[in-house]
Amino acid sequence: MATRSGLLKWYPEFFDKYGAFTVFDLLVDYIKSGRIKLDKSRFPMRATYHDPCNYGRKSEEKFGHGYYDEARFVLDNCLEDWVELFPTRANDFCCGGGGGALLTPYQDARVHYARRKMEQIKRTGAELLVLPCHSCHGQIKAVKETYGMPDLEVKYLWEVVAEALVIE
């Protein structure tokens, strides 16, 4: 988010010289071109996916494209049984860890913020939560115990891909 908007704002000529790709672009490309092969059976459990604000509605707002479908394509290739949260995509709830919230002293507020997100996850009955954002990852791991979900596994999207890699 910061780098992409910064490049657009201050170094627009960058895009004439170099290519630039999001994590989603890379993963989708690797899978579609067959450069990596994935084995879904590594993740048989019920899983769900969290759309981070930065890759979702804020990308949509700032860059005209939200990375919703790319993530879902990757998930379809790694997970046996994953379900959507409600609400999802552009209207998804923030985990409470955005905007540098993990770095401020207002930690009670941050934990309180997560209640809606955690209710959403609980409703799906998922054992595994997949997400593609360092802040969200840190926040959910930090609050899951408070919300009675100590056993919820939290993994990066690329972590799931790495673990589903077929070793050749």
Partner: peptide
């Protein structure tokens, strides 16, 4: 500060003659 840190990415690309950037975050 934000501009300086973004600028470093551009420097890497120029200095190391790299073709593509994987957005950091």
């Amino acid at each position: 500060s934000m501009k300086i840190v973004v600028g470093r990415i551009v420097e890497h690309m120029d200095r190391l003659e790299i073709k593509n950037l994987m957005y950091p975050e």
